[in-house]
Design a protein around this nucleic acid. Structure first.
Lengths: 240, 240
DNA sequence: ACCCTGTGTAACAGTCGGTAACAGTCGCGC
DNA sequence: GCGCGACTGTTACCGACTGTTACACAGGGT
């Protein structure tokens, strides 16, 4: 996810990780000399792509907010992540003939479409691009693994706390306030992502509010006691 | 959710897809002409690498059985996957200065060390290698996502059933019997991977045994009713 | 033989899911 | 502007599943 245009990342919520070695922003100007970059705007609810559609491009989120959904043949569905500006979308489907999941805009968004075979070809002339693409994929794996760790070892309330810290971290990285932000997704999406029920998300948020850790007004979140949240999420104290 | 068409339920039967499945194996002959491949043998319990050690290579499992462990600063630990012949190890750390997790042999194993900068460099001369490496990384992401879906939507018993089916599938792919195999890891490792407790794993296995779905003798597993297991794991019938 | 680890079983406790009723918000049409 | 209806979010209660704790047994290694 956090990819070409941004610096590194790791789920801040989880085990802190070092910055991606040498991974600075990629030069979109340079890339667009090799690849035809198409801009697409999306309204909330619109799909970037759906599972099963022919794979032909990866996407860079330029603005807005999206979710990626994994689905199984028997109807189970799960949100596997949320994407914001700078994140790459579609990399999980590289190497397949068809996309493997759904990506849906949760807010008005703009994404840049990077046709895939051309990107691969450009890598041969821009070694730097190849390094960054590979690193972005690896970062995605680490991100998923970090959440797997969290989801497998934390209680429902801890997961919610970790989720809020992750959102705060990502908002901070994009230059927004990490203490006061708006959730762009509903309780159901958060619940799906965290592997719990939406009522449980509500309950956890209510309790964190009662404990003075946060202030919740529906989708408006204020972090009042970040260290308290961190302790709760099973993470050591960090700053900010 | 959208029952609207265009969806080709793509998800593989199980979170079984291996990293290499998408693109076929890397041509080691060709690769070794560009990269110095070092063979290492490991006894059970030995580490391929530990989190924090300098990153310098990725590995191809040639024989044996290993586990990858994610750890957090506050001591939580979790098995994020098991690796067998043909699987790549270490790709999650690409782009970092240090490895991000532990990899431990669970059985006598042999791995081939592929120094990383040389691999990257070789990609420039072997486009096919780049495609395969990228596809392997993407496959790894899909594998993780598929398990995230499973762990977030299935009960403990369903997870165990899904786990057994996954092991069966992988044994089959390597040419071993998918109906009768030996688990190389202990209950604790299975539990950690599935995000449940080892007693729960035991309970689930005992119940599946009682239901005549499987036959368990400590680490020796026989699948008696594969379709029953699939139904239980929330997957449609498939063959084999 | 001994110890130590891994595995199996059981009783109990706690969290979380299931269900339902209610409240607040938003969009829509009148 | 107002009211209606659909949707989202909130809260409560109950029960099931899973975690906890404890103990016994088997197997491998020393």
């Amino acid at each position: 996810m956090n990819a070409l245009a941004t610096h590194v990342p790791m789920p801040a919520t989880l085990p802190a990780q070092q910055a991606m070695a040498a991974a600075g922003p990629i030069d979109i100007e340079e890339l667009s000399r090799h690849v035809q970059v198409l801009r697409r705007k999306l309204a909330p609810g619109q799909h970037v792509y759906r599972a099963g559609q022919p794979f032909h491009a990866i996407y860079l989120v330029h603005a807005g907010f999206l979710k990626t959904c994994e689905l199984s043949e028997d109807g189970r569905e799960r949100v596997t992540g949320f994407r914001m500006r700078g994140d790459l979308v579609g990399v999980e489907s590289i190497g397949l003939a068809h996309y493997a999941c759904d990506v849906v805009a949760l807010d008005d968004s703009e994404i840049w479409e990077l046709p895939y075979p051309p990107v691969l070809h450009a890598c041969l002339q821009l070694p730097e691009l190849q390094i960054r693409l590979t690193a972005a994929l690896a970062g995605e794996i680490r991100n998923d693994r970090a959440w797997m760790l969290a989801l497998g070892t934390l209680t429902a309330e801890q997961r919610v706390a970790a989720f809020l810290l992750d959102m705060a971290e990502r908002h901070l990285r994009l230059g927004f306030s990490p203490r006061h932000f708006l959730l762009r997704m509903g309780r159901a999406d958060i619940a799906s992502f965290l592997g719990i029920k939406h009522e449980t998300v509500t309950r956890a948020l209510s309790r964190l509010d009662r404990l003075q850790c946060i202030d919740v007004q529906r989708r408006e979140i204020r972090l009042l006691d970040t260290d308290g949240l961190r302790r709760m999420a099973g993470q050591g104290e960090t700053l900010h």
